[in-house]
Design a binder for these strands. Structure first.
Lengths: 368, 368
DNA sequence: AACGCACGTGAATCATATA
DNA sequence: CTATATGATTCACGTGCGT
């Protein structure tokens, strides 16, 4: 093997300060095992700021790097960086991209067009998402990750057994329940405000790295930001390459990663689910067929009656609302636990609706 | 109004047997309130999985260029049916599409390209998904729905309050946990095997219809299959239009829907949203004698005071204006809902002036 | 020390009727 | 069409302070 001066070296465990495409083009081909990418989402926010009910302003992502002139411009950018990543990926490498409904469909289409092979789409269910303040839509409570191999060709790393073992011996599903990056973990600037507008939780990135790479593997992140991927990679005994354009983020990432203590054995598999998540909406009882829309609920002594509506609200006279609200209303009380107050008739006997909730929870125990 | 022979009639509560595009093109424009679509997923499993827009089969070939051609054909088909749906949608109609990672990125991109405005992406988390038998990927435990309005223009139906009421008084999130369509609900053929390969649970479709349409609205499903959308629509007091190419499915759908018993109208009455209630000027409270001119208003914590003037304005110091303007002014906020901010003293207790408005509205209700 | 409560905040495509 | 006035709207956590 002689000297090959035209092949650039692979910078390991370094943060490259520069443009993502140019920096990727400067890397040697077929050299990384895994890519984690958190590209701009191309949020198309209106000119007016969004106010919370208390009239305080939501700190929106209005950074220049998230502005694109059109879908065409965003698509061109997406194809460029994906193609550049593809060149530096080893043949059996895989890639993760995270996004929201604003951009993930563009990204997914581009992946397919470029010959990537989608292995899974993964849903990050946020434990504590921001509410929809104006009540105009469903709470935007998740983001989507796409996991893809370089091509349809077989052969990639997936630690099926480890994931299963860390998940009560059940296969790891495509929906992951994790909290946002807040509190201690969230990097703050000197002013005490968040340093990066979209810092991801390390547990999320860690799970992608654990599932799809081996210790010693090289993990590339072309949108490094404040270095969550680097921190997770170092902690899990992987090497990393980060590319970031913003000097302030580069410096923060370097300091952050320097402080990370690598784990001797990977024990971060089961992410902190924080709370079990046993809440069952009354609507689910209808959907499960345990209560029929149009049927009647009553209290234990049959003093009050309410009609079950198909949306999971109930009505008493002209009023309609949740089981709790209507329970309080008919009794003239400020509050009421509808689960224990309301009953349904089953074979001539009154059964508290809480019993049906228990049934759902029993069936759901393994899945949640 | 004279005869307008060029405008076709709207076939209601019927299953149209025929090609989806041709049937859509035969419908009058701006005539449906909601679309639910469960298009072919373009699973890349083998031959005959992909159809051209003219419904001829594409030979599956592994060549790169043909792979691209396959996506192109699927995209062309997707744009065609989406565009055809868009034409028959009323300006304030919305559309739901369900898909998996095989096709949803193509569909989402096409929606955006055609001018649809994405409102939410919704994750259907399957309670009982099929496991990944080979242990090569994460269990594919969800499908994705996209909810989009016809354009970015405001104004669409969303029953925020009803959904919240059916969900323990919490906003409905973008991740829905529902079981697959199995058991009794799953239609079987004479041979006892499932009649349709991808029959969706009625509860899933019902939730989309409940959240985004009103009783009496017209719900269109261009890929009707065995008529889940029709069954859900009929049960919920909506009208439906179904289009299906396969005669066996058409017949099964007709029989199935005929057997559906609609819910009572009482159970379907839409709860009035706050915004839809009649507007009551503050002056009316004075005229009704509920508030006296010259009396004082204060906030809940008695930090601010205002004087009620006989014309229905209030004043704080030198400033005077509406309850909203002065409420905003004293707090130094850009806006304020005066109805909930200001209180009046009644028997030593503070009562929000919104309570007096409710009294007036109640009186209006009985009078009307 | 333990507990409770007030306050801050997170990738957000977040209003509508009337003049 | 634009401009204006009305007035609707939040969940899960973490931190910090006061009792």
């Amino acid at each position: 093997m002689g000297l090959v001066p035209s092949v650039p070296r692979l910078p390991l465990d370094e943060v490259i300060h520069g443009d993502c495409i140019a920096a990727l083009d400067a890397l040697p081909p077929s050299s990384v095992d895994l890519v984690f990418a958190d590209p701009p989402y191309n949020l198309q926010l209106g000119p007016a700021s969004l106010l919370r009910p208390d009239q305080s302003a939501v700190d929106a992502v209005d950074d220049d790097w998230d502005q694109f002139a059109s879908f065409e411009a965003y698509d061109a950018f997406t194809r460029q960086w994906l193609q550049a990543c593809r060149r530096v990926m080893k043949p059996n490498a895989t890639l993760w991209v995270i996004g929201s409904y604003h951009n993930i469909f563009r990204v997914g289409s581009a992946l397919q067009d470029l010959g990537f092979w989608i292995l899974n789409d993964i849903v990050w269910r946020k434990a504590n998402p921001m509410p929809n303040f104006r009540g105009k839509r469903f709470t935007n409570a998740h983001e989507t990750l796409i996991w893809a191999s370089r091509s349809a060709q077989k052969g990639y790393t997936f630690h099926y057994e480890a994931l299963k073992g860390g998940n009560d011996d059940l296969q790891m599903r495509s929906d992951w329940f994790l909290p946002l990056c807040t509190g201690e973990e969230r990097l703050k600037g000197a002013d005490g405000r968040k340093l990066h507008p979209t810092q991801k939780p390390e547990a999320l990135v860690a799970r992608t790295i654990l599932s799809a790479s081996n210790p010693g593997d090289v993990v590339l992140d072309p949108f490094f930001g404040t270095g969550t991927t680097g921190a997770a990679a170092k902690r899990l005994g992987r090497r990393f390459i980060g590319i970031e354009r913003e000097p302030a983020y580069v410096q923060a990432a370097r300091e952050r990663i320097a402080a990370v203590e690598p784990l001797s054995t990977a024990a971060l598999l089961t992410a902190p689910t924080k709370r079990a998540e046993p809440r069952v909406p009354f609507l689910s009882l209808l959907e499960a067929g345990l209560i029929r829309a149009g049927s009647q609920l009553t209290d234990e002594r049959r003093r009050f009656k309410a009609l079950v509506r198909p949306d999971g609200t109930i009505s008493a006279g002209p009023a309609c609302g949740s089981i709790h609200k209507i329970g309080a209303l008919v009794q003239g009380l400020p509050a009421c636990n509808g689960w224990t107050f309301w009953h349904a008739e089953r074979g001539g006997r009154l059964v508290p609706i809480d019993a049906f909730r228990a049934e759902i929870r029993a069936g759901l125990g393994s899945a949640a």
